[in-house]
Design a protein around this nucleic acid. Sequence first.
DNA 1: CATTTCAATGAGATCGATCTCTTTTTCCAA
DNA 2: TTGGAAAAAGAGATCGATCTCATTGAAATG
Lengths: 360, 360
Amino acid sequence: MGEPGNARDGKTRKAARLIDVARLANVSRATAARALGGYGVVTQETQRKVAEAATALDYRVNDLARSMRSGKTLTIGVVVADISNSFTLNSIRGIIDASASAGYQSLVLNTDGDVRREREAIRVLREKRVDGLLVVPASRIEVDHLAGGRGHGAPVVLFDRFIDDLPLDSVITADFEASRAAINLFVQHGHRRIGLLLGTAAHHGHQESEPHDTVSAVRERARGAMAGFADANLTVNSAWVRYAGSVAPTALAAARHLLAQSPRPTAVLAGNEEMLLGALAAAEEIDLTIGQDLSLIGFDDAPWLAVFRPPLSVVQRPTYELGRQAVTLLLSKVEGDRRPNSIVLPATLVSRASVARIGS
Amino acid sequence: MGEPGNARDGKTRKAARLIDVARLANVSRATAARALGGYGVVTQETQRKVAEAATALDYRVNDLARSMRSGKTLTIGVVVADISNSFTLNSIRGIIDASASAGYQSLVLNTDGDVRREREAIRVLREKRVDGLLVVPASRIEVDHLAGGRGHGAPVVLFDRFIDDLPLDSVITADFEASRAAINLFVQHGHRRIGLLLGTAAHHGHQESEPHDTVSAVRERARGAMAGFADANLTVNSAWVRYAGSVAPTALAAARHLLAQSPRPTAVLAGNEEMLLGALAAAEEIDLTIGQDLSLIGFDDAPWLAVFRPPLSVVQRPTYELGRQAVTLLLSKVEGDRRPNSIVLPATLVSRASVARIGS
DNA sequence: CATTTCAATGAGATCGATCTCTTTTTCCAA
DNA sequence: TTGGAAAAAGAGATCGATCTCATTGAAATG
């Protein structure tokens, strides 16, 4: 007597379980499960009784128990490097919409580009027994945690980045081509001193040489730019190339450094939203007018670009669609497809007023 | 024989369970659990054996089973109305950091301000047996799903919005005061024709009267503005007040409408990031110069505001801190604290060049 | 040496839903 | 009225970790 927690009175007691519903409806657990789950055969009458009992008790299935029994969680894990930027946000919308319409939940975790947090995130998601993983890997070196390990077979699909020598499918955009096209545009407008502002992981510093552990997306953009330079027979001035951690102060510092060179580049390709903001801030500081003293191209459209003047040229990537396709691919893996299959979507260069024609 | 899935060979078989570790280490499940869980008493020797076995088998605990047994998931659910805006993003960072350091995971779901999606999100999270819920409610009318219902006692804390007559704790900012201060600033600069652009749920339309189901944050901002008008003995011109769904096209349409009035307001308070972008776009269309022809104040700082010219005045809210405090409050509820406790953090009006002084 | 006292470990129950395999019931035909 | 098939429902096992409550064994004490 006095034992707390028994479900006698209707007040704030323990949550009703299937067995409580079954008792109230005067049937067995199995029958109650059939009635609620909509499988097997049940009388209309039984169906009604069970449904009534469930309503009366405010029964909600315990997803933990169900997943444990079924071995499926109907959940995918999404591990992104930077949840703040427009690219990721739109991709996530695509991911969530696509997985929801396939009956899957998405759990999104953010790593800020930190491999340790990524490893931790993947561990947690695996412990939660997600059915599949979509990962924007923070490193191309430390990748051991991506391979599932014995029996932890939840398939992994890489998002926006690929890793050489690792047999994982990926869904990416054509960064090389996009970057090359951006450089070509600069060249067509007469630019010959072109700077590169490339955002890398969120370390706090910037440098001129490619960091040893540079993710594919950035590397491809760098290589695409180099190809663009080669197209125009330009030699690369390494003082005009800057790799910087993707946080506002670092981006700003790198941009300042770039614009303090002499001679100063007349055009800058910014590798992501942070770098673009850094370039704009640095240019403002030394009174350079965008689209006049300095030409700019960024990566990825963002809402604020609609009101920024002058309008900025950007590489537009199919973010939402990228997310959708990644989910489709991942779920095919979840359902057992073993064929390797990577997807590359094209990017579009949108030319706006931020690229000026300069004297011949 | 030939049965698939038995864990004999070391290849890609089933994931190791506790019992597999126990067998390999020649101990019972109970002992293995003690050794791995770090509770109870175990010999150094046993500890070593078990640890070795676990490593050898690449054992990972099954969180589903653990949570089921323990009744705790060490997870909180976060249901936000719009994951895209800077306010939410920063808040989420605060929420994630605070909950992580308390040993909790955060599951973030987005509703886009749609009550149906909110209801669904909360249902899913409750089925996943989260220990607590942080919700930015989309409606102040449809709130039945917020109350846990019999035994589904995961506590709920409201975030950024409160609901009258519902005994739920909330963590909000002083929107009334902030809004009033914004109007006061306009008035001090000589403005007497002041427009209001208030963002509501994501329906597609805009109107001059307050929608019946307006969330507290918006309502408080409206009332704060009214108080500001009263402070200056201004009567409200309802043609200068616009409630609009928080999606780009609607925001733009509402802003256009507002600026098409005759006489046209000389100053506009934009209730969120979308409305601010809408106002900027509409002003641009009819060649109004911000900080000259039109004064503007927005809500919440965003990264792009650092490079936008002229610098825009905004109400700055302590987003990250708001998230942290919400988690602290929620976790105290999770651990059984029953005392009602709501938190209001102050907002700061940051005055920048977008507010012009106009002739007396 | 017998007995007490811990330290260390093991056996088995438990969490809640589902699923396989009976068992019971129903209904129709011979 | 009885056999038999089909329909409906029930019993019990299962998923994997944890926790309570024995039980074992060894050291310590008289």
